[in-house]
Amino acid sequence: MDYLEEMAKYQKTEKEKEFGSDFLKTQEVEDYEFWDEIEIGKETETEVPIKFEVKAEDMMAYAEGVPDDNPLFYDEEYAKKCGHDGLVAHPLFGTQVLFFVLRKGHGSWLRTPGSRNPGQVMEWYDPIRVGDVLSLKQRGYDKWIKRGKYYMRYLAEVYDQNGTLKCRLFTTLILPKTRADVLRFVKGEHALEA
């Protein structure tokens, strides 16, 4: 059984079943943004067209995948007794939202084979609740070279259907420098200078 079939065994929610799990499809990778093609200092703001309708199963699935068995993430009544206004989303639930909506084009460098995660910054403003319809606005925030590594940072803001800001994520990765480097990684070759 290959790795994609292994993972398919764990896909339970509607979104998990619908989402493509092969990040090495060459055509999809060709549609990504690449580090050296994004102009340094350029700031763009784009509202991503795909929305994320939050279901309880999405929130529970993220907590289960941490794994985090805190009943706040699974039991609405317990969460209310603890002073929350409903089922609680795990603080990093926004990760699932980002990957769901950023499939190609602007911001899709998040999926790049060969990328490395140096750490992240997140800010929360309003709880994500079941029934929210989330949309994403993002802009290129910074890119830099440090010790021969190529860093990219976007500021992603998640809003609900009422325009309420839910959270801000300063998403940062160390990326392969060029499209050619990424395509070498797709073939399973090592293509990092540092």
């Binding site: 990040f23 993220y62 995948g65 941490v66 699932q96 999926r111």
Partner: peptide
């Protein structure tokens, strides 16, 4: 693998 499914981050470096 379970975390990849839950986060939708299927980067091969993890999976």
């Amino acid at each position: 693998w379970k975390h990849a499914v839950a986060s939708l981050d299927y980067n091969p470096v993890h999976t």
